[in-house]
C-alpha cells in the first residue's frame, strides 16, 4: 500500500488545551497557598497541611480500588465500606496478637507489626472480595439498581458479622509505640503516624501508576475500562480480570481500613460506611475510573477538610460537598474522567 495518499495528520494539542488538561494538578498547590494565606500562622498551616495530605492519601487508598472497579466493571459497589471495616478489625486483631511487638520500643518491631497487620488484612479482604464478587456482584452485572441494593445488603451483612465476631462496641486501637507522638519542626508539631500515612499513600499511588502504565495487566485494565467487549474479542478473559481487579480493590480498602483505624484510634463496624461518603465524593471529583483524578480529588478533600475545620468548624461539614459541586460545575464528568457518563 502506498503512503502517498495518506498524509500523516497529527498536531500538538493547542496551548490552551494543554493548560486546561494540566489545571487540575495545579489545584492542590493553589489550595495549599490559599490555606496559607487564610491561616496566616506558618506552623499551624504546616501541621494542617500534613494532616490534610495524610487524610487525603488514606482516602485515596480506600477510593482507588472503588474507582477502578467502577471504571472497568461498571459496578456501583456500595458494599466497599464493608472491606474497610473488616480490614480495620482484622488489622486490630493482628496488632493485639502482636502486642509484644507494638509495645516494644524497637521501631523495627513496631513497623513489622503494622506491616503484618496490613498484609493479613489485605489478604483477608482480598479473599472476601473474591466471595463478594462471585456471590453478590456477578449475578447483577449491568443492572445498576440491583447492584446498589445487593451491595448495600452485603454491607449490612458484613457489619452484622463484625458484631458477631468482635462485638458491637467501639474498640480503641493503640498505635505502636514508635508511631505515637509528634516530630517538631520549628513551631509545628507533625504527628509521626501522619508522615507514615503520607509515605504509604504516595508509594501506593506511584506503584499503581507504574502497574497501569507499564505492565500488560495495566494495559488490559485501561483498555477494559474503555471497551471491555473489544478486550474479549482480542482473546482475553475479561471476567477473570474483573475478579482480579475486584480483589485488589477490596484489598486496598482493607489496607485503608487498617490505616484509618490507626489514624482515628477507634474502630466500629460502621466506620466503613461512614467514610464512604468522602470516598464517593473523591471518586466523583476525580472522574469515574481515573486513578490520577482520584489522587488529586483525595488530596483536595483532605486539605480542604483540615483547613476549614481550623478556620470555620461549622463550614467543615459542607466544605467537601461544596468542593464537589464547584468541580462538577467546572467539569461535569470530574477532573479526569475515564468512563464518560451516559
Amino acid at each position: 500500500m502506498s503512503d502517498t495518499t495518506i498524509k500523516p495528520r497529527i498536531e500538538k494539542a493547542p496551548v490552551l488545551e494543554r493548560i486546561t488538561t494540566a489545571l487540575p494538578i495545579a489545584l492542590v498547590p493553589v489550595l495549599a497557598v490559599l490555606g496559607f494565606v487564610a491561616i496566616g500562622d506558618p506552623a499551624a498551616w504546616l501541621t494542617l497541611t500534613v494532616a490534610g495530605l495524610a487524610m487525603g492519601l488514606m482516602i485515596f487508598i480506600m477510593a482507588s480500588g472503588l474507582t477502578v472497579v467502577f471504571g472497568l466493571m461498571d459496578v456501583i459497589n456500595f458494599g466497599h465500606g464493608a472491606f474497610i471495616s473488616v480490614g480495620a478489625f482484622v488489622g486490630f486483631s493482628i496488632l493485639i496478637w502482636l502486642g509484644g511487638w507494638t509495645a516494644s520500643s524497637s521501631v523495627f518491631l513496631n513497623l513489622a507489626a503494622v506491616f503484618l497487620a496490613i498484609l493479613v488484612s489485605m489478604v483477608a479482604t482480598g479473599l472476601m472480595g473474591y466471595a463478594f464478587e462471585r456471590v453478590i456482584v456477578m449475578p447483577v452485572y449491568g443492572q445498576h439498581l440491583k447492584q446498589i441494593l445487593v451491595t448495600m445488603g452485603g454491607l449490612i451483612v458484613a457489619q452484622q458479622l463484625i458484631h458477631v465476631f468482635w462485638g458491637p462496641d467501639e474498640i480503641h486501637v493503640a498505635r505502636p509505640e514508635s508511631l505515637r507522638g509528634s516530630i517538631v519542626i520549628g513551631e509545628a508539631a507533625i504527628e509521626k503516624y501522619r508522615l507514615v500515612a503520607v509515605g504509604i499513600g504516595v508509594a501506593l499511588f506511584l506503584a499503581m501508576r507504574h502497574v497501569l502504565k507499564s505492565t500488560k495487566i495495566g494495559l488490559l485494565v485501561r483498555a477494559g475500562v474503555e471497551n471491555g467487549e473489544m478486550v474479549e474479542a482480542l482473546g482475553y478473559r475479561i471476567r477473570r480480570l474483573f475478579l482480579i481487579v475486584f480483589m485488589v480493590g477490596s484489598a486496598l480498602a482493607g489496607l485503608g481500613g487498617v490505616m484509618w483505624g490507626l489514624y482515628q484510634e477507634t474502630i466500629t463496624a460502621h466506620m466503613g460506611s461512614e467514610i464512604m461518603v468522602l470516598v464517593f465524593i473523591v471518586v466523583i471529583i476525580g472522574g469515574l475510573g481515573s486513578v490520577e483524578g482520584c489522587f488529586i480529588g483525595a488530596l483536595l478533600v483532605g486539605l480542604l477538610s483540615n483547613y476549614t475545620a481550623f478556620l470555620a468548624p461549622k463550614v467543615a461539614l459542607v466544605s467537601t460537598i461544596a468542593l464537589m459541586v464547584i468541580i462538577l460545575m467546572w467539569r461535569p464528568q470530574g477532573l479526569y474522567p475515564v468512563v464518560k457518563a451516559k
Binding site: K216, L219, L220, R222, A223, V225, E226, N227, E229, M230, V231, A233, L234, G235, Y236, V338
Partner: peptide
Amino acid sequence: GIFTDLTVAENMTLAAAR
C-alpha cells in the same frame, strides 16, 4: 474498537494476546 486512551504501540501490544 480502538482503545483511544492507549498509544498505537500499546494497542498493538495488547492485540498480541499470545
